[in-house]
């Protein structure tokens, strides 16, 4: 890997973190069984890992939002008692998004050591598909409330599965905190850092 291309990859990989952010620097801190379990990239293929991270992160984010999207539709039907939600175009949009993610997942190659992580992403995607199937059945058949109960169980399972593929080091977190309560640069500035270029990796 040439220095230039590696640096470019890394710069793109850390678009939500400064190069000196604690979130990147303390990469060994994630406990086994917790958020990030399964993301154990091989140290021998950094470029493959970075390629994978760049490809996987938007898919993780897409699934995260798709799960929220489908769960929100369920809430609207079940708490609002609005069966007409089943006929909204939002459901078609969710299916379209699911298909886009399916195609994108097919294009991703997981490097050695990250097969398990990729498997969790695929599994979460498959379970969201099952939840959408339940929606389709609810629209076509009687017993729609029971179908939506099933969809609710599926979407919970999909969320739990995707949560096991969360990896803060790679910017894969269930909540986008960028405007919420924190910013990466804040600690660094307090420690005397200047407002230089965010991704100045040095020479």
């Amino acid at each position: 890997m040439t220095k230039g291309s590696g640096q470019a990859f890394f710069e793109r990989a850390v678009t939500i973190h400064r190069y000196d952010c604690e979130a990147v620097a303390t990469s060994a801190a994630t406990p086994a069984g917790g958020e990030g379990d399964g993301y154990e990239p091989s140290a021998t293929a950094p470029e493959a890992v970075i390629r994978y991270t760049l490809a996987a992160r938007p898919l993780y984010d897409g699934m995260r939002r798709l799960i929220g999207h489908v769960a929100g539709l369920l809430v609207l039907v079940q708490a609002g008692g609005r069966r007409d939600v089943l006929d909204l175009p939002d459901l078609t949009v969710a299916r379209d998004r699911w298909l886009e993610l399916r195609d994108a997942l097919r294009d991703v190659a997981s490097p050695r050591g990250l097969e398990q992580h990729f498997g969790r992403m695929e599994l979460a995607h498959a379970i969201v598909g099952e939840a959408l199937d339940e929606f389709d059945d609810a629209r076509r058949q009687s017993g729609w409330k029971r179908r939506l109960d099933h969809a609710g169980e599926k979407i919970k399972s999909a969320y739990a599965t995707l949560q096991t593929a969360s990896e803060p080091r790679a910017g894969m977190t269930m909540v986008d905190f960028s405007q919420a309560c924190c910013s990466c640069a804040q600690h660094w500035r307090q420690e005397g850092g200047s407002n230089g270029p965010v991704f100045d990796l040095g020479s």
Binding site: R64, G68, Y159, D176, A180
Partner: peptide
Amino acid sequence: WVWAMSLPDRMRWMNVAVDPGDIVRGVD
């Protein structure tokens, strides 16, 4: 939020600070 989560990636700022898990728990 459902609408915001369905928007393209380039508009993802509009669903900042929401945990889809909270919406999932709302289903229950």
